[in-house]
Amino acid sequence: MKNIFITFLILMVVWILLNNSVQINILIPGLITAFIVSLLVCRQCEIFTDYKLTPKAFAYTIIFLFVFFIELIKSNLDVIKRVLSPSLPINPGIVEVKTTLKSKFARMMLANTITLTPGTLTVEVKDESFFIHWIDVQTDDIEKAGNEIVKKFEKYLEVIYG
């Protein structure tokens, strides 16, 4: 039920953004199509089962997007600096970090976020371990690397997906 509802909401938002208007004669076909599609596609899917439909989770989603965007810009400045400096100051390696997140969707979001943030790229996910290619390895200790890479996002995702 929750899956169908969230899929429906997302489809509706996409429809409105694509049409760029909220007139009633445009909204109604969208409503019908989104309803049918979400029923057909999402009878068995369980992507959003862990998403909490509370105001707090919603607020944290917004904050998370902001934090994410700031980290994205920071990571880009960092990469640009490395690429343009003549000595190519990289120190690459693959490190392991552990996550405490249980939900599949939250883990996917975390892996995505890691990939888009400063100098890190998720190479493999196995059980609780993320193997991360780090362009500038500072420590190969699981705990310390975890603090450095995943902690700042984990605390938001924990609230959002539980």
């Binding site: 390696g93 693959i94 490190v95 392991e96 888009l116 190479v123 493999e124 193997f131």
Partner: peptide, 29 residues
């Protein structure tokens, strides 16, 4: 974007494309 690059990196690792000589640590191995 991150999904595609993750999949590319994973595939590259498992068909054993070598890491550069400047690599300091490889926990996955």
């Amino acid at each position: 974007n991150p999904v595609s690059s993750h999949v590319l990196a994973r595939a590259a690792y498992f068909i054993k494309i070598p890491l550069t000589r400047r690599t300091v640590v490889d926990k996955l191995k």
